[in-house]
Design a protein around this nucleic acid. Structure first.
Lengths: 244, 244
DNA sequence: CGAAACGTTGAATGGTTTCAACAAGAGTGG
DNA sequence: CCACTCTTGTTGAAACCATTCAACGTTTCG
């Protein structure tokens, strides 16, 4: 199987663990039940008990939480190769909603299939746990950003993190990437108002650091942006393979 | 064994899963390697690779992340009955530090012992995974609070969450609880300045909602505080036992 | 006794929000 | 095909929440 034929998840995990043909086969088998979802229509609602997880193969999703006053906070995004609702499979709590940003393709994963795959191939289990732990580290970093970075650094950090994540599945680089998010998504993610997001983006553009326009992010000064954000990608843990 | 003799973790999990004598015995055996740590001296440093986890039996700990500019963000607190560094056992990433708020007592748990306990008693494994997932839900709720609640609601929510958590191990109620945190801890937790924390506490006190003084939190108007915070404890998942 | 940590308060500053208005493009139905 | 609406992006001005700076009181502890 060539690299292009593999799923984004396979590609992501392969950057981390050298998987055998057997393990690759098990992983691909998890992708059997293909599903499509329409942009803007929530896949899972807050409070609903989800008994399945998904592997996202195409498109973007965000998971968010609604407040009593109507505002919402986006907790994180899923891009191709990411799991979706992995936590809710093992437990009853599904305390946030999932919204596809664009039309998406995802593979439905049954709890039983996942557990079976885990017992068959322990190394694959390790790789998937790595991905889950990395997701959690991103939430923590997100929290730190909202708590202790100003709007400019927050935006810069977010755009850089997305670049790293997308690079892992071949959808981005230090030059830039396609990004279907609106300024409202950014606002709900970064804990800002949409108006201020607009201003911050303008400032970053005028400083010659990065441009976000027409659903595309273009880095003009990657290093400068890293400095502004205080971006240390260590938490993404993607510097090289852990298991050989 | 009477309730008072049990460890806080046992007490916490018992509120959720009715554990058999066998399971209780396995759980207590995890508490064999007792350790003490001194207040203010970090147990684990950012970047260090921790191969062990701890079960906190007495005292308070916070886990935090330092920023390049010297500010810090506290991600969450551990109170008696909580795991500490559970994630870092399974994986290599230990991207934050742990600081004991006061002198603490903790049980060191080896990865091997934990895995053995998991295979011996699957129900216990479920209970521990429940606790881990609950911890994660708290981080998410924390993120939402920093992103979308103003300082007053943020503080109120935080104090209420602590009350619920402590109630689970018999250390707090809707009347109040002992709390060794300084205003600096609160500031680093809530993404505020220490000065503003002081002002917010004063306002909550003057409004007759809650008093935080001399290391003790006293609720004067629990319901009013819940309203102000928009506190919905569903994410804590402690409304009643899940498994019988 | 002096130092250090914590708490408290005022005044000035500033980052961010809110309110308001308008422009551009996409989709929809008449 | 055109008016219409809805979504998204953009900008200005005023108001506000929170920070910073500064000073001082209190307690603890060596």
């Amino acid at each position: 199987m060539t690299s292009a034929e593999r799923s984004p998840l396979t590609r992501k995990l392969s950057a981390f663990v050298a998987l055998s043909e057997d393990e690759l086969a098990v992983l691909e088998r998890l992708h059997q039940r293909r599903r499509s979802f329409t942009a803007g229509r929530d896949m899972v609602h807050q409070g609903q008990s989800a008994r399945v997880a998904y592997i996202l193969s195409a498109g973007w999703v965000c998971s968010y939480k609604l407040q009593p006053d109507g505002t919402r906070q986006i907790v994180d995004f899923q891009v191709p190769g990411d799991f979706l609702g992995l936590r809710s499979v093992l437990l009853r709590t599904s305390d946030h909603s999932f919204e596809p940003i664009v039309d998406i393709e995802a593979a439905e994963v049954l709890t039983s299939d996942l557990l079976e795959a885990f017992t068959q191939t322990p190394r694959l289990a390790t790789a998937i746990l790595w991905a889950a732990s990395r997701d959690e580290a991103m939430v923590v970093e997100h929290l730190v950003g909202i708590g202790r970075r100003d709007a400019g650094a927050r935006m810069a950090h977010f755009l850089l993190e997305l670049a790293s994540r997308l690079a892992l599945v071949g959808m981005g680089s230090k030059e830039g990437y396609d990004c279907p998010l609106t300024q409202y998504h950014l606002a709900d993610t970064l804990g800002l108002s949409a108006v201020h997001v607009n201003r911050v983006l303008r400032q970053l553009r005028e400083e010659g650091l990065v441009t976000f326009r027409d659903a595309h992010v273009t880095f003009h000064d990657y290093g400068g942006l890293v400095d502004l954000a205080g971006f240390d990608p260590a938490y993404l843990d993607q510097t090289g393979p852990l298991l050989k």
